[in-house]
Design a protein around this nucleic acid. Structure first.
Lengths: 220, 220
DNA sequence: GCAGTTACGCTACGACTCGTATCGAAAGCC
DNA sequence: GGCTTTCGATACGAGTCGTAGCGTAACTGC
């Protein structure tokens, strides 16, 4: 009996990998998937990461505990998928200028991180991922990559507007994109979780100004 | 029997609060304190946060499990103190310019976060602190405040050098200091833990340039 | 419609961890 | 020497873990 035929909800996003979703036998209940992930988020809000137990999640979702273990290897993987669903709503409408786009990205990150299930879940799995390469890769593809796409998209727009210089060397361009992403995402996360203060519009404006103009006074 | 007479090693740093360290009775073994904290860091490296148990730490430190529970309320508080000790080495030598000072701070943060015990421990307790106000305050005073002091010190130096404008309104000055701190610390944390790439000298230089000059090309 | 295959709910299980209680012994003050 | 507090050791009930076993449900192909 193979453990991960599609690795549950996560598999749906990259079904290009799995050779065949299996044609025979009773199919896995997709409603159970969504119920389990919703129950996981609910438990994260009420109990937090450390006190969350798989037995409790199963009871909330109305499924047997064994069903959970058939689909997910453990708590870490389950919470990653549950939290990843929160990032589905990430969009980047064109707001006309680089500054406005940065503010938009920041506020969207902040809105997700303001949720208690994201706060207690995301950082915990990131902490666990320092000792688990597979988990880190799972987080990267299902969460970080989607955040990063927004940053890259905003950058392309700014270049087409002429607000940013076009890419010179594609290698250094990738490095600066990584840098900007770490700065944007890191700042929002640190503000929200460590400083524990809201990353509201006022803060987003100040951050954008700093990111665009820098710390030095720009000589006129 | 009162639980925290000094709250262990952490209490030593702010003994101004505790009214009297108690003059009577057998004093708590200070060697046990350091042994326990060292054992905690060792266990963090070998087991990581989630698999770390207080019983295991007690065995490593050569003390009884009950001794641990007499001094710390639980795993969270213990790990905070164990990780906080890593930040004792934070210093900010004057390197002559704002850019060099920023690089110095970044590289010091990075050096600490490169350690496995900091990686797996720090983020985990921060995740837990989202549901525990007392724990958040403990983290703030014993870890975050010391980081922040470096940023503030670097700023004061830059002002005395004339590289940064002096404080206009003390209130907005505090806000921008908070902002800069979140950007610096957040970027290093995100680079190290989420992107999982080293925040080395090359990266520190690129980050410093971005923070100083901003994203826009400065019009000469 | 029947055989084959897989998922499901349910129950039960040993192993482990938790946090506490209890006890006698040890270490420091008056 | 008396008082107070900590220490090590052991034991304990409660809770969680991850797995196994079993009968049933769902879906496919002949």
């Amino acid at each position: 009996m193979p453990k991960p035929p599609g690795t549950a909800g996560y598999g749906r996003r990259m079904q290009s990998r799995s050779p065949a979703p299996r044609a025979t036998g009773r199919p896995r209940s997709t409603t159970a998937d969504t119920a389990i992930l919703a129950a996981t988020r609910e438990a994260l809000v009420e109990l937090g990461w450390s006190k969350l137990t798989l037995g409790d999640v199963a009871a909330r979702a109305g499924v047997a505990k064994t069903t959970l273990y058939r689909r997910w290897a453990g708590k870490n993987e389950l919470v990653v998928d549950a939290v990843a669903a929160l990032f589905d709503e990430l969009r980047l409408p064109d707001r006309g200028s680089l500054a406005a786009d940065i503010e938009g990205v920041v506020l969207q990150f902040a809105a997700i991180l303001a949720r208690p299930e994201a706060k207690s879940g995301l950082m915990a799995v990131i902490a666990e991922s320092t000792r688990d390469e597979a988990l880190r890769e799972r987080i990267r593809t299902s969460i970080v990559a989607r955040q990063k796409r927004l940053v890259l998209e905003g950058r392309t727009r700014a270049q087409s507007r002429g607000e940013l210089p076009p890419e010179q060397d594609p290698k250094t361009a990738a490095h600066t994109a990584d840098l900007i992403f770490d700065v944007v995402a890191g700042a929002v996360v640190h503000r929200t979780l460590v400083s524990a203060e809201p990353a509201d519009e006022t803060w987003a404006m100040a951050f954008t100004k700093l990111l665009l103009e820098g710390l030095k006074e720009t000589p006129r």
